[in-house]
């Protein structure tokens, strides 16, 4: 698809925003300011931003335990996300969700899901809902190589294929399911290969090339929107950080991580491209990064300054009609 100069700049800015957000979350976690678990997706920005860049505001996404990036890419505001991660009452979920369970239904974000593979069946239902209501929305469900081995994946892909539901299954294959290498755990060569079994398209992309991802996902979204049914898109990517913050990562070497950082970093690659194409100068990019960093600081300040919930609020929000 055609990507304008402004769109390219926006793609870079969103990737930078996500990277800085994630780095900040990591820092705050290690300063023991964020309770619980955090799972960062640094290194995977091109896959997420390229995929969400072709969605409309009224389209749906479902994210994963490693979900900050998807939620930001679909338009959520960093300040309410930080507040949620801090357990503050101003957070997206009033402090009831935390890092693994952030949603913004007003933006079509049906939530990050703490259960690996938990999103597939739910998106199937959003697909039925879209068909029954007669709209041309699309649902995009993000998952990792690990989740592709859950039964939920196979039931949902079959169901979506049978009913031609408007769903794009976006696999962010970051090579490790927790600690287990994908090549040891995923039969059939790739996740995308599994599409053939269900008679739907399956594509594999260089997941650190934001434009390649965007083009491939655009095709799948277009197909879904026109009523031709679901697709699987697999973006080959890499996470620089552990499965969770604090993961000792005995399953891989620091060298392997360094190789990816030096040769396939999605932000470095795209910056170089924009400079080579004359779309932006290094100076402009540096200025943009400084502006995003300042926004992130403001967002953190908002979260820090926000009040904690009254503990009694734990008893609210269970039922609409108690």
């Amino acid at each position: 698809m055609k990507t304008s100069t402004n769109e390219k700049k926006a793609l870079l800015r969103k990737m930078v925003e996500i990277r800085l957000f994630e780095e900040k979350i990591g820092l705050l976690f290690h300063q023991q300011l964020i309770p619980g678990f955090v799972h960062l997706s640094i290194g995977q920005e091109a896959s997420t931003v390229g995929s969400c860049s072709v969605l409309r505001p009224d389209d749906y996404i479902i994210s994963t335990h490693r979900g900050h990036a998807h939620i930001l890419a679909k338009g959520a505001e960093p300040k309410y996300m930080f507040a949620e991660c801090f357990g503050k009452v101003t957070g997206y979920c009033k402090g009831k969700g935390g890092s693994m369970h952030i949603a913004d239904f007003s933006k079509g974000i049906l939530g990050a899901n703490g259960v690996v593979g938990g999103g597939f069946p739910i998106m199937t239902g959003a697909g039925f809902s879209i068909k029954l209501r007669g709209t041309d929305q699309v649902g995009m469900v993000f998952f990792g190589d690990g989740a592709s081995n859950r039964g939920t994946f196979h039931e949902a892909v079959n169901m979506a294929a049978v009913f031609k539901l408007p769903i794009v299954f976006v696999c962010e294959n970051n090579r490790y399911a927790s600690t287990s290498p994908a090549e040891k755990m995923v039969a059939g060569g790739s996740v995308a290969n599994r599409a053939h079994a269900y008679g739907i398209p399956g594509a594999i992309n260089d997941g650190s090339n934001v434009l390649a991802v965007r083009d491939s996902v655009a095709e799948a979204v277009d197909r879904a929107r026109k009523g031709y049914g679901p697709s699987i898109v697999e973006n080959e990517t890499y996470r620089y950080k552990g499965h969770f913050e604090g993961d000792r990562q005995r399953y891989r070497t620091p060298d392997e991580i360094q190789q990816y950082r030096l040769t396939r970093d999605p932000i470095d690659r795209f910056e170089t491209l924009l400079i080579d194409e004359g779309i932006a100068t290094q100076k402009e990019i540096d200025a943009m990064k400084a502006a995003v960093a300042a926004e992130i600081e403001d967002a953190v300040k908002f979260a820090m300054d926000s009040p904690l919930p009254d503990p009694h609020e734990a008893m609210q929000d269970l039922f609409v009609n108690p």
Partner: peptide, 16 residues
């Protein structure tokens, strides 16, 4: 059944 029940959840979340 997993997809059926999950589909109910997703449909309920999106207006049905």
């Amino acid at each position: 059944e997993t997809a059926i029940v999950g589909a109910g959840v997703g449909a309920a979340l999106t207006g049905m």
